[in-house]
Amino acid sequence: MEVKEILREYPKNGRSNLIPILQEIQERQGYLSREAVKEVGEYLSLPASKIFGVATFYNQFRFEPRGKYHIQVCRGTACHVLGSATVLEELEKTLKIKPGQTTRDGLFSLEVVACIGACGLAPVISINGEFHARVTAASIHQTIEQLKNGEVQS
């Protein structure tokens, strides 16, 4: 329904508005679902493969719903110098997902961002918008465990 509302604002056919449409859908729904892509394709007369091709060209689009805890890993220069590659690797290993993916239980999702403007806190990650400063492999483990435990208790 939501997608139709968004589409109504744009002219039919043609690809010139494809990216703003996809951005708006992601903003409202958190990701680009197959159903959304299907509707966009029908509206704009574009094949789904083409839309997927355009969307995967850009890092900003996700194709799975966000997890309850959305983790953004900063891969900016300062964070990189202070070991954000290890941080990302540790998260991938612990959660068994790649950037852009969501854990099967729907708890965690991972995203790589270029710089979140908190270089003083490097390496930094953001969980649902809350910054975690100077993270290490050990501290990440702890944080993830805490969030998981919190889920079990609640």
Partner: peptide
């Protein structure tokens, strides 16, 4: 049915999703 998916060295030919 197929198109270029992803970007740069990660580009593959693939289907939607």
């Amino acid at each position: 049915a197929i198109d270029f998916i992803n970007r740069g060295s990660n580009t593959v030919i693939g289907t939607a999703y």
